[in-house]
Structure formats: C-alpha cells, structure tokens
Design a binder for these strands. Structure first.
Lengths: 190, 190
DNA sequence: TCATGCGGGTTTTATAATCAACAAATAAGA
DNA sequence: TCTTATTTGTTGATTATAAAACCCGCATGA
C-alpha cells in the first residue's frame, strides 16, 4: 500500500481502476471510453486526464504497478536457511492479488490480457527459479526445466481460478495448497 | 439523491456515515471518537469538522436527512384514484432504506436509537393516516386507531428485520408483503 | 507531584478534484 | 455526401480535502 500518496489520489485511482475492471468484464478494452470510466467511477472526466493520457496508458500503468509490486515482494524475500519453504513468499503473492482483485481478475482470467499473463509468467520464472531450485535440491537439470514451466503455469492458473471463484479461501489457505502441489510433484526429482 | 451537492462532499459524507454505522455495530455512540470515524472513513480528521460540530451533531444531521427524505416521499405521493393502492409509496420507502442501509440498520435494529424509531413511527402515523383510512373505507374509528398503531409498529418492525437480515429481498418484494399484511388484517373493518 | 500520552478542536498552506465551457476530432445516420 | 451527435482533450476559476502543526483539557500512572 502506497502510504506516500495523497489520500485523494489513492481513492480516485481506486475508483477508476474498479470502474475499468467492471467494464472489462462486459467488453474489450478497445471500446471502453474515458467517459464511461469517469461516469462509473463517479469522478469528473477531466480528473481522468490528470492521471492518464488515455485508456491504454491507464491499463499499462496499472499493469506496471502490479508488476512492480510482484518484483518488490520477490526481491524482499530471502530464505533464512537452505531448507526454508516458499510459503511466506506465496502468501504475500496471494495477498497482492487480493489487494488488486478487481483488476487482476479480468487481467488473468479468460478474456484477459494474454500479454499480461505472459509477462507475469516470465517474471515468476526469472525471479523464483533460484529459490525453487535451491529448495528442491535439483539433480537432473534438463527435466527440471519442464517441470518448472509446469509449476509456473500451474500457479498462474491457480491465481485465475481463485480470483474467478470469488476468493472464497484465504491467501494463507491458498498458499498452503500451492506449496503442497509444488513439493509433491517435485518428489520425482529426489 | 442530492445532485446539487459536490461529488467530493457526497463521497466524504458517505464515507463518514458508513464509518459511523460500522462503529455503532460495536459500541454505543458515547464512546465513538471523531478520530475513529475519520480513520475508518479514510479522511483527514480536520475534514470532519468542515461538516459536523461533533459526533452527536453528525448523528442528528444524518437522522434529519433521513426524515426529510421520508417526508418528501410521502408528500409527493398522491393516489390517482380513491382505490389506488399504497404499493408505489411503500416501494419508495424500502428503496430509501436500501439507499441508507448501513446507517438505517443500526438506527432501527436492536441496540438502535429508540428516539429515532419513535420519531419515525410518529412520522408514519401522521403522514399516512389519511391515505390508509381513505383506502380502507373505515367505519369504526375507535378500533381503527389501535389497528393503525399496530400497522405502524408492524411496518417498522419489518424494516428492521429486512435490514438486519441483509436485505435478501428486493424493495418491490418487501413492499408486496407489507401491503398484503396491511390489507389482510384490515378485513375485520369491512 | 510532574510527566507523558491521547482525543478534541483549530489553523495554515498546498494541492487534488470539481464544474462548466470550449473547439477539435470521430462516429453515425440520412 | 452533408448534417448531427458523441467523444475527446484542454482550459480557468473555484472549492473541498489533505497534511502537519498547533494548543488545550484530561486522564493515567510513575
């Protein structure tokens, strides 16, 4: 949560983001107008332009913000010991999704933004690989590459169905499932 | 909905009102601080004082606003014919409650403000008596007085349980029930 | 006893958001 | 095609809210 931002900015951006998300549920981005967003967000149309150049700029900025937060979470995670689990990290990821659920739902779920999803996967792949490999004590590197792709796709899929299903489970519960899935499957490498 | 008010004012007041309502669920008015309201509403504390003198003033103003809207609804209702039902009027009343549900819930329900409830009953009594009497074609005036008190208490009770139950039914459905109850019981006067 | 803390009000300065109006661009229909 | 709406950016003046710092009164506890 950005504490350094003016309350007013935080609220207007939230309102606009929610409005955009709810519009994206009904129609594709290319026929969503600034006017609609402003109206639904219950803000003056001019206010939109104080923050974004147009609708595409808005989506791009919002996506970048999410990516930045992902990065931040992952970068700030350092396991205490060699055998430390990924659990705390995964919990934070689910919390992040929860904080941005309206938008994340439409970006990740079906009819979502394929590019966004791909960037997300790449991010997870690049950033988490080291930790997972260390944790699992990998011997067979080649086969593991595939398993790692499998993990990444599985996780993002899990994100999507959790969000689409209305987030019935808590982030902690979901993190538990996720870690379990990852570790169980990794038994083949032992 | 007050269209003449600045968006910002509308939103701030809504936030403060919701905050107050949610605090009233947990504790009595006399130990709810301005600080708490501002914090929960996510507004600057100083902003509170731009609108209200203190917490009591706030409650009073909010109650008055609700009463004014009640009055407005009732005053603007004129039956087309002698036999016209109260249905449209009742629907509007339930809509009004829905629009102010957070606050109305705590004011009307148990642990609510007894004075508020009493004022509400008196308002309904005074304003609706004419219409109901006309509609029911009353002969026995004396006994009807009691029946009318009975109706009023019944209606406000219905308001309370609908709000407390989370407003599962639509205003139109509730208005249907309400009118049915009133008319059925009134058969004894025919 | 004094200190420390907390809530109540108030003030000042800075800035975000409002509203209303506008001309240019774009879409839509006859 | 020409005409008519609709959306788009942008502007200027105004207002509401934010933030941070006050002082005050009161309580609580060392």
């Amino acid at each position: 949560m950005k504490k350094n931002e003016d309350r007013r900015i935080r609220k207007t951006k939230k309102a606009m983001s929610d409005a955009l998300a709810s519009l994206l549920l009904k129609k594709p981005l290319n026929n969503i107008s600034v006017r609609e967003i402003a109206e639904l967000a219950d803000i003056n149309r001019g206010t939109f332009y104080l923050h974004y150049r147009d609708v595409y700029d808005m989506v791009e900025q919002l996506q970048n913000e999410i990516f930045e937060k992902f990065n931040e979470i992952i970068d700030n995670y350092e396991p205490k010991s060699e055998t430390d689990s990924l659990f705390p990290l995964i919990v934070e990821v689910f919390n992040l999704l929860a904080d941005n659920s309206e938008l994340a739902k439409v970006l990740i779920s079906k009819n979502g933004d394929a590019i966004f999803l791909d960037k997300l996967k790449n991010l997870l792949r690049d950033k988490c690989l080291v930790n997972v490999k260390k944790l699992l004590k990998i011997k067979n590197e080649d086969e593991f590459q595939y398993y790692y792709d499998y993990i990444i796709a599985g996780c993002t899929g899990l994100f999507g169905s959790w969000l689409a299903g209305g987030m019935k489970e808590t982030p902690v519960e979901m993190a538990g499932y996720t870690e379990e899935f990852i570790m169980k499957g990794a038994d083949i490498f032992k």
